[in-house]
């Protein structure tokens, strides 16, 4: 059936559409660089969506829990064995994503008789300075979007994944406007949470291209976000400890959001 090339292209297109439909309800996740480190934030859907991968690397994911789990385990295993045989400094997010994860995900996606990974991943690696922070998004088909090539200037001090292209674009445009490098964690939490709300609004109002006003954001935030429902973690920039990942406590989030 799919020996013919155009059948294959058709099958891939169908599969892409199917996966996008499956991912569309995923709660957006925002990763954002600030002075204290890299913040990960999302509003909970009941299960954990932000994970520690290695000393300086964390991951957020939307998609099928089984697939997220397989990718998460693979990432931890690869990073841990590398860190064990060499050193923690030799564990590189760039290599983990490009060399290990992406080819496997691409192969799974393109082999139409097998199951693809139903997941969209957001990785970040905290650097010594904010300019060295690395953000990577890995798609179900292995495509990677980065916040800047190794030689280029850093493009954005944040990255977002969500259920749809439009919602992601809306948050990106909001954060490009509102989030400046050098912001503190408290400001970061506030901006990230507003970003999450912007993604929700973008899903509601596909007919208008206008970005939501501050008042609309505040109203929607009051309506949709409960303090306990916010899941947050930070990769700390301070090198006082080797392990930088830490989940944010409810009181820390509450203090920043006034909830």
């Amino acid at each position: 059936m799919i020996e013919e090339p155009y059948r294959w292209v058709e099958a891939i297109a169908n599969r892409r559409e199917y996966i996008e439909t499956q991912l569309v309800s995923g709660s957006p996740i925002v990763a954002l660089g600030c002075e204290e480190g890299i913040l990960f934030l999302t509003v909970g859907s009941g299960r954990q969506k932000i994970f520690e991968i290695y000393d300086r690397i964390a991951m957020g994911a939307i998609g099928h829990p089984g697939d997220i789990e397989r990718l998460r385990m693979a990432a931890i295993e690869l990073a841990s064995t590398e860190g064990f045989t060499r050193s923690a400094a030799d564990v590189s997010l760039r290599r983990l994503a490009y060399y290990s994860l992406s080819p496997v995900m691409k192969t799974a996606f393109e082999q139409v008789y097998g199951a693809p990974y139903l997941a969209r991943l957001l990785f970040a690696e905290v650097g010594a300075t904010q300019a060295q922070d690395l953000f990577l998004r890995v798609e179900y088909d292995g495509a990677i979007t980065s916040n800047g090539a190794p030689t280029a200037v850093q493009l954005d001090a944040f990255a977002v994944i969500s259920g749809s292209r439009d919602a992601t674009a809306a948050v990106e445009s909001y954060l490009r406007d509102q989030h400046k490098p050098g912001a503190t964690l408290v400001h970061g939490i506030d901006a990230a949470l507003n970003g999450w709300v912007v993604a929700q609004l973008a899903g509601d109002t596909t007919n208008t291209k206008e970005p939501p006003t501050d008042a609309q954001i505040a109203a929607a935030r009051a309506e949709r976000v409960r303090a306990g429902g916010i899941e947050g973690a930070i990769l700390e920039r301070s090198d006082a400890r080797a392990i930088r990942y830490r989940m944010l406590s409810e009181s820390e989030i509450g203090a920043a959001t006034g909830a």
Binding site: Q48, E52, I53, Y54, I76, S80, G83, F84, I243
Partner: peptide
Amino acid sequence: ARVLEHSFQYFRRTQL
């Protein structure tokens, strides 16, 4: 000690 250190971290990261 190195194996042990990584074992504890590996457990925490995988098993949450």
